[in-house]
Amino acid sequence: MSPRYRSFAALLALALALVPAVPPVAAQQLAPNRISSTGDSITEAIDAELPLANHWASWAGGYSNFWTRLFGLADVRSHNQRIDFFINPGGRANFIEAKSGADSFDFPGQALQAVDHAAAYVTVFMGHNDVCQNDFADIPTDAEFEANMRAGLESLRTGLPVGATVYVVSIVDIYKLWELGDELTALGLLDCELLWSLTLLELFPCGTMLSPLNSEEDRQFTRGRNIAFNEILSALVDEYSQADPEHYYFYTGSIFDTEFVADDISWIDCFHPSPRGQKKLSHKTWNVGPFADF
């Protein structure tokens, strides 16, 4: 490079250094007309009202229509319904990607489905089955959990339409659910411990919290993992929120802190949220969520 050219390059570099950095322009947030809810059995509303999946009663994708009203089924005022009521955007679509039994290892796959559905609003309520395992040896490490969730978020970042919103909800405090079942048993209302004894045969989920063989130390260990995973979710959302100007990321820890009462858990399995519990999930998450002000 000639001395003259070197001088020009140096001047140009200096000039560029002096120009104030232009922050990336945030994309316009899309109306949440296409909602995709990722997660596990809670988002599928397993055992909420009737045995197995009760999608109409899902906190995120729940719905009310002619048939649910005819049969008198629960109306949980889900995010999907609130979008209709408060925002009423055109081109509505509602996809429940959640699957019973899904854990963080399944999140990347569900995220890809949300991308395929060109979702404008993705809810993420995942991690219960990471905390809830048959054995303590199966609870993922922080690194594994983070890698799984990051992989899913990365798919959303690269695949969702510009302006889409990702809303990550903290894992429920599963210790409190155990307390509720324990209370129902102690009060003579329902023998939850009988149901939970099926964890010993791996016929019922969440042996790491509900197994009758667990000590208090075991339950508190599991709760510790619950808290650690929520911290990872919060940190990931912070990171993506700062690094990705094209999408909107939100996190709420409010669900971990939520107090549930006996009527909030399913009387079918003493564990999953009842319609009242689903309604509470929807109410709490919506009110601190990305569209609360609409």
């Binding site: 303590f136 609870i139 130390e217 075991d218």
Partner: peptide
């Protein structure tokens, strides 16, 4: 990876037990 998880569980469980 499973051995790492088990070690972590046993260590943390002992800490919780001692605190209790």
């Amino acid at each position: 990876e499973v051995r790492t998880r088990v070690r972590s569980y046993l260590e943390e469980r002992a800490r919780i037990a001692r605190r209790l």
